[in-house]
């Protein structure tokens, strides 16, 4: 299998087709930014992008990523080493408390903004409705995703 993660190609033995993507990212690649909250595909802490679509890494196997491009939170970068504008928006809006849901939340928000640079607050709430957060009540997370839209216009 050939899996690209954050721009780097990995050749993986076919015997590992049925290994879980989340575990592989965390244990083999040391990409621990992707979190395990429930392990049953509910909480969204493990959301990564596979070919641009938000997917729960705990419910995906390596064969599902074969020949595809996986983006994790570590792969989200701004220009010249700066934070990605969406990450910066999370900082500026006070969207981060304990932070455990945040990588998955940012990946879901990023997937939405790639499709729709200026979603309504209701559209944002719907897009992150499968990312659970127990700290923030979501308000400042919605603020962050809403405020980052302009940066997606510029990059378009």
């Amino acid at each position: 299998m050939e899996i690209t993660v954050n721009g780097t190609k990995h050749i993986v033995d076919d015997s590992r087709q049925d290994d879980e993507l989340l575990n592989w990212l965390r244990e083999d690649l040391n990409l621990t930014g992707t979190k395990n909250g429930c392990h049953v595909g509910i909480c969204g802490a493990c959301v990564v992008l596979i070919d641009g679509k938000p997917m729960r890494a705990c419910r995906r196997l390596l064969k599902h990523a074969d020949g595809k491009e996986v983006t994790t939170i570590e792969g989200l970068k701004g220009k010249d080493g700066a934070l990605h504008p969406l990450q910066q928006a999370f900082v500026d809006c006070g969207a981060v408390q304990c932070g455990y849901c945040i990588p998955g939340m940012i990946m879901s928000g990023h997937a939405l903004l790639l499709q729709n640079h200026h979603p309504s607050r209701d559209e944002i709430r719907k897009a992150i409705s499968n990312n659970l957060c127990r700290c923030t009540g979501y308000v400042q997370i919605v603020d962050a995703i809403e405020s980052a839209g302009n940066a997606y216009d510029e990059n378009a």
């Binding site: 930014g33 992707t34 939170i73 570590e74 989200l76 934070l83 990450q87 999370f90 900082v91 932070g99």
Partner: peptide, 10 residues
């Protein structure tokens, strides 16, 4: 906040 950057970058 002091830990925000670490938390948004994973």
């Amino acid at each position: 906040r002091n830990d925000a950057v670490a938390k948004v970058t994973g």
